[in-house]
């Protein structure tokens, strides 16, 4: 696998403008207080999250580990404002977020990476990355250039016109990384991004994710089963009994 190009000036230039907003007030990029979520399964209520807190500072990377079914995905969905908690509050850059009207802000504030990539099969790699800026209603020439650059940065410069079906798992996840970074969000939420990849490919993807976040000053919440991957983040947390510690 080709080693992705190290640094990209234009990525950093664009980023610096956003860094102002990002670090405004110096407060945490993400702040969750007492998040609780339970599901009704048959007539039994499963308490998945029991009032957990989380603070992520700008540019900080946090890993979350936990058993299968411990509620890691549930937590990420709450943090992304995709789902509403039963109790607790969430704030992005100090601004309170309610799931119902988080949609619009999510496009610029969050990049998400999933275990099974979720690329749109009808679109080639470039268009998949551009989808993030399309949703903002502005795929201009600058966005195209940025998408190409990001694809180059993740080592897929030669594959921009390939459809997801023509890419390997690792390559697909790298397209998904580029898509998550497309709108220069201050925060990336990654839910077991290496879960569907073999070990070596997983290692490269995590290396890439971490270095991209480092270069661009993007904060990262990484859910993973892999202790070695978790060790590479600034801070490691465990989700157990519905609480992060």
């Amino acid at each position: 696998m080709a080693e992705p190009a190290r640094s990209s000036d234009s990525l950093n230039v664009e980023r610096s403008a956003l860094n102002v907003e990002r670090s405004a007030g110096g407060g945490p990029i993400l702040q969750a207080r007492g998040l609780a979520k339970s599901y009704l399964s048959g007539d039994r209520r499963i308490e998945v999250l029991r009032g957990t807190d989380l603070d992520v500072a700008a540019g900080e990377s946090v890993s979350i580990r936990g058993e299968s079914g411990s509620g890691k995905s549930t937590l990420l969905h709450l943090l992304a404002g995709l789902d509403a908690p039963d109790a607790g509050t969430l704030a992005w850059a100090g601004a309170p977020i309610v799931a119902a009207d988080a949609t619009e802000r999510r496009a610029t504030y969050l990049g998400m990476v999933f275990q099974s990539f979720y690329l749109i099969p009808e679109l080639d790699a470039l268009q998949n990355v551009l989808m993030a800026s399309r949703i903002l209603g502005r795929p201009g020439p600058a966005d195209r250039a940025r998408a190409r650059e990001l694809l180059g940065r993740v080592g897929l410069a030669g594959r921009v016109t390939h459809l997801p079906a023509q890419l390997s798992g690792g390559e697909r996840q790298r397209v998904a990384l580029a898509r998550a970074l497309m709108n220069s969000p201050p925060l990336i939420l990654a839910d077991e991004p290496t879960g569907n990849l073999d070990e070596r490919t997983g290692d490269t993807v995590i290396e890439l994710l971490l270095s991209l976040c480092r270069e661009t000053g993007t904060a990262l919440v990484l859910v993973t089963h892999n202790a070695a991957h978790a060790a590479k983040t600034h801070r490691g947390l465990f989700l157990h009994d519905g609480v992060l510690r």
Binding site: A80, T103, E104, R106, M112, Y118, I120, A132, I135
Partner: peptide
């Protein structure tokens, strides 16, 4: 279904 979920995650409105 999953792509529709992804579009929401990307900030697409229902």
């Amino acid at each position: 279904t999953r792509e529709i979920g992804l579009l929401s995650a990307l900030g697409g409105k229902p």
